[in-house]
């Protein structure tokens, strides 16, 4: 029995004049209905490309895709573009980062939701409009009957994101992908949207993928967390595992880079040295090795050999050359105390 969403060895490569961009390079994960997967990574880690790939939005483009994407028992990479298009918006939907640019400025919010609904439902405009008003009400937009005829720019940032969510949910999708859903929002508005997404997921029992660089958002929503770096998964596990017992130096780096309000203020942040890699020129061996403080402990393997993503405990996968025992020892004795010092 396969999972509701099963992604196996997904690769998405883009040939360019400068060389092959390996945006996603062998990604495997699965997700059940009603569960949330958080994908964490920095710019260029391949997290957004993954989500567009699942939706089939690279089809017909320059991208070269391989691997398997099973959605509810159906394989999507080999399926025809038109078949995937029919699933898009209905079975799987997406919420984008910046609702201002993601909504068409020339059409009313209502028109855009009506369009989304009518693509997959053979109903009259009137019926679809009623549905749109209903959806706007459900995502907490006051006076939906009059706001339905407003243009996106007449909405505030938070209301726009609500409208975007209403549009994505209009066909009752079973898989919802949210790409940085709150990044463009103010913190108080972000809180409302996070509440809303949690409530709606419970209501619709959909599978949710949240893509973000914000560990707070991930911690709040996710059951599982997948940390991406240079197009590959470097750590994958239950949310508690990844937050309390992380084993990959990159995950440690992310945790150390982030000033936290829920703890005493640390004197210094512990950043990761260097910058995220360019996907054209991913460093050989472990992609993280130029930034990894522990690279020299691998007897040179970090520079030459790509580490495997290996199980370190049930449900916890880590891609690192260091031995699991050493990683755990480092985390317990060095990293964790450092993150918690006052």
């Amino acid at each position: 029995m396969t999972a509701f969403l099963d992604v196996k060895d997904l690769r998405i490569h883009f040939p360019t004049d400068d060389g092959l961009v390996r945006s996603v390079d062998g990604l495997t994960f699965s997700l059940e209905r009603g569960k949330t997967l958080g994908i964490v990574g920095e710019s260029g880690s391949g997290k957004s490309v993954t989500s567009l790939g699942i939706l089939g939005l690279h089809k017909g483009g320059r991208a070269r895709m391989s691997g398997e994407i099973w959605l509810d028992g159906e394989e999507l990479i080999g399926a025809s573009a038109d078949h995937v298009r029919r699933l898009r918006g209905k079975k799987m939907a997406m919420i984008f980062q910046d609702p201002l640019s993601a909504m068409h400025p020339y059409y009313t919010v209502g028109d855009q939701i009506i369009e989304a609904y009518r693509i997959h439902h053979d109903v009259t405009k009137k019926v679809a409009r009623k549905h749109a008003i209903d959806m706007l009400g459900r995502v907490g937009i006051p006076e939906p009957t009059s706001r339905v005829d407003d243009y996106p720019h007449q909405f505030s940032g938070g209301m726009r994101q609500r409208a975007m969510i209403a549009m994505a949910l209009s066909c009752d999708p079973e898989l919802l992908i949210a790409d940085e859903p709150t990044t463009a929002l103010d913190v108080t508005v972000q809180a409302q949207i996070l509440d809303l997404m949690r409530d709606l997921q419970r209501e619709f029992n959909s599978a949710l993928i949240v893509i973000t660089h914000d560990l707070g958002v991930v911690a709040e929503l996710s059951d599982d967390i997948l940390v991406m770096y240079g197009g590959k998964c470097v750590e994958y596990g239950a949310a508690e595992t990844v937050f309390y017992d992380p084993e990959h130096p990159y995950t440690w780096g992310l945790l150390g880079s982030m000033p936290r309000l829920d703890r005493e203020r640390t004197e210094r942040l512990l950043p990761i040295k260097g910058s995220p890699p360019s996907l054209i020129n991913v460093p050989p061996g472990c992609a993280f090795h130029p930034r990894c403080p522990y690279a020299e402990r691998t007897e040179g393997r970090a520079e030459t050999e790509v580490p495997e993503l290996l199980k370190t405990s049930p449900g916890h996968l880590v891609r690192c050359h260091m031995a699991p025992e050493e990683r755990r020892r480092l985390w317990e004795s060095e990293i964790k105390p450092m993150l918690e010092t006052t």
Binding site: L87, A102, H104, Y106, I119, M167
Partner: peptide, 26 residues
């Protein structure tokens, strides 16, 4: 190349609709 074109595709709109209704209009 705009975001709203990607949104239109993500809704499952046929490509001609994406081009004419969303792209050309703008």
């Amino acid at each position: 190349g705009e975001d709203y074109i990607r949104t239109a595709r993500a809704k499952g709109l046929v490509e001609r609709g994406v081009v004419v209704k969303h792209g050309l209009r703008a």
